[in-house]
Computed example of a mutant assay.
Amino acid sequence: MVGDSEAQPLDQDLDVLVEEKSILTLDLRDISTKDLEAPSIKWLLETSTDPEVVLATAKLVPQVEWPLDLDVSDMLHQLSDIFTSCVDVQGNIVPSLEEKASACTTALTHLYYGRVLQAHPRCDNFIVGERGDADVFWEIFRGGICTTDRTVLHTTINLCSPNSLPYAPLVSEACPDSVLERLSHLLPYHFVTGRANTHIEDLAITVISNLLSSPSPPSTQIIANCTLLACVMVRTQVDKKDIIRIDKRCHRLIWWFFSMINKEIM
């Protein structure tokens, strides 16, 4: 075999590596997995043609933090298109596609709130360029989406047109805590962007009251959401990043809330 006579023994190579330790030193930047979650989900949703992958990816959207500097405009349009593909010619959701339609609706509303915060105070046609956002959500609302999603959709329509909606989003007695928790995460956007009307104020009080008086003890996430919502309701100044964070630290948030209240009193 060519080169056998010049081959160095393996042990000798190892000795060289041990002596020259710098050869083994790898300067790898410590990248948080959180920094990769949103871009990875964005890439999957925009590139995958597998319906199962699209469904699973859409379900992940509300579970991660979406940085304000990450452009999700294409995702909004895509999720709207996917929802439309679940609707028949009469405008009703095809029964076999209800899960897909619901996942897309949840993902669409979640990303939309972040887009509004990013572009505040300008909020026009984020989802489809030539149509108003309120019209898009109204069509989804009328399309027969499940009852639990309708409360969130109605609240989102309020965000799109805070001064022109004559009726309030209603929270039924049967509304599950999961929907109330989702509302507690979304409602602060209304106050921070100046889009809260009396209906939203009443809804926020109802959500906080129902969540904190639930028979089951509220999770730290629910307490954090309610605390942050209470903060913005009394016009306490908050950082935009505090609004979009999913993993709020409850005890730190409460401490921050009371410190801000003390400043106001002083």
Rank of each mutant, 00 (worst) to 15 (best):
P218Y: 03
E130N: 14
P176I: 01
D135T: 12
I223P: 00
L165A: 01
L68W: 05
Q78I: 14
D242K: 05
N158Y: 00
H77F: 08
A107C: 11
D124C: 13
W138P: 00
S164V: 01
Q90E: 13
H154I: 01
T236A: 04
E130H: 13
D242L: 14
D177W: 04
L228P: 02
S259W: 00
P176H: 03
G143T: 04
D149H: 11
Y189N: 07
S184E: 03
D135M: 10
V16T: 13
L10N: 06
P51L: 06
L108G: 11
L153W: 04
I246D: 02
C123P: 00
K42N: 06
V136E: 08
E139I: 10
P62M: 03
L228F: 05
D11T: 11
M75I: 14
S259L: 08
L186V: 02
I205N: 13
M266T: 11
Q8P: 04
T206V: 11
V171I: 14
I127D: 08
Q237H: 10
L60C: 10
M1C: 10
V64G: 06
N163Y: 11
V89H: 08
A56C: 06
T220Y: 07
E139K: 10
R245Y: 01
G144N: 02
G129W: 02
Q90G: 06
Y113E: 04
P188Y: 06
L28K: 08
S22F: 10
L108K: 10
Q8T: 15
Q63F: 06
P218Q: 03
P162M: 01
G194M: 04
E19G: 12
T106R: 13
T25N: 11
P218T: 04
N92M: 11
